[in-house]
Design a protein around this nucleic acid. Structure first.
Lengths: 182, 182
DNA sequence: TTTCAAGGCTACTGATGTTAGCCTTGAGCA
DNA sequence: TGCTCAAGGCTAACATCAGTAGCCTTGAAA
């Protein structure tokens, strides 16, 4: 490593991630990232292929963090309690990383940024298999994750506009769904 | 109307909508829209305030179309059958307008494009009230729409990667959910 | 016949992503 | 101890966008 490295891929990803959440997708410019990490714009391209690649790196980091949080939360042994913990952890994580979460579940055709996330499904599949039995595990897991993600997405999008208590709706839906999958 | 109008707001919105679905969000440029409607780029700004405004117009049209399709499909009188029709119509519409659908449920912070859609909730609320009773109507409607939208969103995002039959999962989830809300 | 504004247009500005190609630095080898 | 060389900075430049300024043509109405 000849000259002093003034930044790193990790620093670039961290800066990008912060800017993404603070200012939104469009405001995440290579110029601003460069400024945050203390370097000129073209120097970023020594570490990151292009802007889409930066998004990919950011979202991969987010997915890994989310998976870890879920795995840590859902380990009581009781599938119902653990599925509740999984759902609540997913939701809390999305609330703390709203922009990144939205991007995670946005098609590549829209963002141009694919993200891999195989890892995070293992825990869900295990819990749902315990709850619904192996025969219905896959459709049950899809039902569960569709509801969780749909609820959080709409909530973040401000799509619940009819008033009422959103927390009540969350608990209502989660309870009914877990009962329905048993 | 002095000179021959060579285009119209409707033509611009139609062209934009087509380009949006065919090539994705980023590829929807004012230049391409102008070319399609047979005019130079700056002339678009006589009809449309800016690119965000064009998105708003497109998405408003999409929402109205979707609401109309749902209202037309869900009128048998039986709330369960009508909720099934509502869900299936929503899904079919999303499959035909995947990019627009994704944008519809993406937060303003991400797209910078707010869309109003009060109208489409009336039918859902009526059906869910019949099914679940007035006390649980709001949380039940939110549970329903969260699942529908979540399923479709993940499907479009290519997030169901574990194989299996997605149609089976859709029917499974819809059936269980309707039973759970009764 | 004159007016006048709607609705075209060209020319331009400012952001932004990205590439080309140069220069400095310092770790490791001769 | 001095030389090499590539990692990792940098400036300069380009292409592509959205959007603005300001002009010109047209044709309907006075």
């Amino acid at each position: 490593m000849p000259a002093h490295a003034q930044t790193s891929t990790a620093a670039i990803v961290a800066a990008g991630r912060r800017l993404l959440e603070e200012r939104g997708v469009d405001a995440l410019t290579m110029r601003d990232v460069a400024e945050v990490v203390g370097v000129r714009t073209p120097s970023l391209y020594k570490r990151v292929r292009n802007r889409a690649d930066l998004f990919r790196l950011i979202l991969t980091e987010v997915v890994d963090e989310m998976s870890a949080a879920i795995d840590a939360a859902a380990n009581s042994g009781d599938p119902v309690a653990d599925l509740r913990a999984l759902a609540n952890t997913f939701r809390r994580f999305a609330h703390r990383n709203p922009v990144a979460h939205t991007l995670l579940f946005t098609p590549r055709e829209v963002t141009g940024t694919p993200v891999e996330s195989q890892r995070s499904t293992a825990t869900l599949m295990r819990l749902v298999t315990e709850l619904a039995g192996p025969g219905d595990a896959l459709p049950a897991a899809r039902t569960m994750v569709a509801w969780i993600n749909g609820f959080v997405t709409m909530e973040l999008a401000g799509a619940f506009r009819l008033g009422g208590d959103v927390e009540v709706a969350w608990d209502f839906g989660l309870g009914r769904l877990l009962a329905a999958l048993r």
